[in-house]
Amino acid sequence: MVESVVSVENLQIKFDVSVPLLSRLLKRKPKTYVHAVRGVDFSIKKGETFSLVGESGCGKSTVAKLLSGLHKPSDGSVVFKGHDLVSLSRSKLKEVRRGFQMIFQDPYASLNPRWKVADIIGEPIDLFGLADSKQHKQAMVIELLHQVGLSGEDRLKYPHEFSGGQRQRISIARALASKPEFLICDEPTSALDVSVQAQVLNIMSELQEKLGLTYLFISHDMSVVSHFSDRVGIMYLGRLVEVGEVADIFNSPKHPYTKMLMEAIPSMDEINKERTPVSGEVPSPLNPPSGCAFHPRCPNATHACASESPVLRDLGERSVACLNV
């Protein structure tokens, strides 16, 4: 039994999207909430890559932000190495925080444009007090730059002097500066070109091997996920609909939504393939369908699907949330 680094139980978050107080009182409208994450459970084992996949609005990025502490969950728990992050005191939280870091999607927005690379990578070193002296800090920065395939001289430049892929490497170096075990990667390659994406993914898997990192990988790109992850969770409207080993999910999807996703991926092996795509789009999370959120688009929906909300059931190797599986 490999120990789990992170486990998440019944994670939920509601965002208040009400109109301002005065107009709400005048129009006698109640407060409105978006239930962005509606009860998510998973755990990530040490050294593995767990991916969350789904279309926009499914809440996958929100889960990443909940785990990283950028949002406070409305309900549920996030347990990182035995510490419940939700109930932890501030000082203790800072200590635990060293253990996990985040890599962001947009390499142009994730680095402060007015800071030099040395300061960007040095920030976590300063914050966690990891270096004894200026020389030590500089040596650490150079070492980190080497680790992601950049040269030590690059520390004196500003972010705008780098290409998208190089910036993402700087972002990774910053995340690694506090020597974390767990990295939350929110669409780290979706803003990059494919040839550069390959470079970044390769660096990430090299680092995983070398440093024994655990990844939570958020992506909407199925092919990247199938290449990069060990286990996959498919999300739809704030819930996990299917969780399993990557090969199982991609080769024999069980949930109708997973099937639909797999069907829609453009394929380079079957050129000019004729398809009959599934109709419909993801409904607004403001007003999700009753019962199983997927039932209005589901080809095998029954009457029960409209009223009963399925839970994630364990089917041995994988779990599926569908009444008809």
């Binding site: 502490g69 947009d106 914050l127 506090s178």
Partner: peptide
């Protein structure tokens, strides 16, 4: 709203 600020928050600044 930008990610570099979020990154700083994740670091605990």
């Amino acid at each position: 709203g930008k990610e570099y600020v979020q990154a700083a928050r994740v670091m605990g600044s």
